[in-house]
Simulated scan of single mutants.
Amino acid sequence: MRRALLAITGLAAGTTAMVVLKGSPGTSPVAHDLPAAPPPVVPAPAGPTPTGGEVSAAPSPSRTGASPRPDRTATRPPASRPSATTRAPSAPRTTTKPPPAPTTRTVTGPVVENEYGNVQVQITLRGTRIVDVVALELPEETAQSDQRSEQVDGRYSGTSGLVVQRQSADVDTVSGATATSTSYRQSLQAAIDRAN
């Protein structure tokens, strides 16, 4: 009877030590790192058992691979995983594709006649921006009209001409080539209007 009382007392002391060492949620982490007291050994009662054998000591917990510290996972709440039916919808996927490159297109203005000949202009646009201007027709009847046409073409046409710089048909008249300049602007404005 005395041995049984000692065994119960030892078991109670061991359980109390484990509870104290595990600590409550407000205890410092230092208490968690202390080694647990070894489990008490319960002495076997002496004497024969009804089957004729001796009673062996109470089996001690297995120590193979066990840590001397108490098991902390038992006090942690299980990780909550959302079920498939209660999972919040994920944010829509956004792709970071670059914006599409603006399309390049050409628009041709009408042929505009004047006393020196015909003028026709073609513009190239990338998106809504004029990037190039070409004179398809200019007066070349005489040396003088050819010279004036070259002046107008050199000033207005090309990727760096006044039309591309100003992005409109509102360009100054070339001195000495008023008729050709006016016809050029008329064909150009018609091409811009068709592009819009």
Score class of each variant (00 low, 15 high):
Val133Gln: 07
Val55Ala: 11
Lys97Pro: 01
Pro59Asn: 04
Ser145Leu: 06
Glu113Val: 05
Arg194Tyr: 08
Pro78Trp: 08
Ala57Ser: 10
Arg2Pro: 06
Pro78Lys: 13
Arg185His: 01
Gly10Gln: 01
Arg194Thr: 15
Ala84Pro: 12
Asp146Cys: 03
Arg194Glu: 15
Ser175Gln: 12
Ala169Arg: 04
Gln147Val: 08
Pro110Glu: 06
Pro98Thr: 14
Thr103Val: 15
Gly10Trp: 04
Val164His: 04
Ala101Asp: 14
Thr182Val: 14
Met1Phe: 08
Val19Pro: 00
Arg194Gln: 15
Pro100Thr: 15
Gly53Val: 02
Pro102Glu: 05
Glu115Gly: 01
Gln189Gly: 00
Val131Gly: 01
Pro82Ile: 10
Ala190Glu: 13
Thr27Asn: 05
Ser175Thr: 15
Val19Ala: 13
Thr180Gly: 01
Leu21His: 06
Pro39Arg: 05
Ala190Tyr: 02
Ala44Gly: 00
Leu162Phe: 03
Gln165Lys: 14
Gln122Cys: 12
Pro78Arg: 13
Val134Leu: 10
Asp170Pro: 02
Gly26Lys: 09
Thr15Lys: 09
Arg194Cys: 01
Gln122Thr: 15
Ile123Ala: 07
Thr27Trp: 03
Asn114Ser: 03
Pro29His: 03
Val111Asp: 07
Ala17Asp: 11
Thr180Gln: 06
Leu138Arg: 13
Leu34Ser: 05
Leu188Asp: 02
Ala177Met: 11
Pro35Ala: 11
Ser67Arg: 03
Gln186Asp: 03
Pro50Tyr: 02
Thr49Val: 01
Lys97Tyr: 08
Arg72Gln: 14
Gly23Leu: 00
His32Asn: 07
Gly127Ala: 09
Arg72Trp: 13
Ala66Phe: 08
Thr73Asn: 15
Ala12Ser: 09
Gly53Ala: 14
Gly109Tyr: 05
Gly23Phe: 02
Ser60Trp: 01
Pro45Met: 11
Val107Gly: 10
Arg72Cys: 03
Thr159His: 04
Ala101Arg: 14
Leu188Ser: 04
Gly14Thr: 00
Val20His: 04
Leu162Ser: 02
Gly117Leu: 05
Asp193Leu: 07
Asp153Pro: 00
Ala66Glu: 15
Pro25Ala: 06
Pro68Gly: 03
Pro78Val: 10
Thr73Glu: 13
Gln120Trp: 03
Val107Phe: 14
Thr173Arg: 08
Thr96Ala: 12
Asp193Gln: 12
Ala58Gly: 02
Val42Trp: 14
Thr108Ile: 02
Arg148Lys: 14
Pro70Asn: 12
Arg93Asn: 08
Gly23Pro: 06
Asp170Tyr: 04
Ala177Cys: 12
Pro89Tyr: 00
Ser183Tyr: 02
Ser175Met: 10
Ala46Pro: 04
Pro38Tyr: 00
Thr16Trp: 06
Leu11Gln: 10
Thr96Asp: 13
Val121Gly: 06
Ala7Ile: 07
Ala143Val: 13
Arg87Asp: 10
Ala57Pro: 08
Pro35Tyr: 05
Glu141Arg: 15
Pro25Lys: 03
Leu188Thr: 04
Ala58Arg: 09
Arg185Ile: 07
Ala36Asp: 07
Arg166Glu: 06
Thr94Glu: 09
Pro110Phe: 04
Leu5Pro: 00
Thr27Tyr: 01
Thr94Arg: 14
Pro92Cys: 05
Ser181His: 08
Gly53Leu: 13
Ile192Tyr: 11
Pro45Cys: 00
Leu125Thr: 12
Thr49Phe: 00
Val55Met: 03
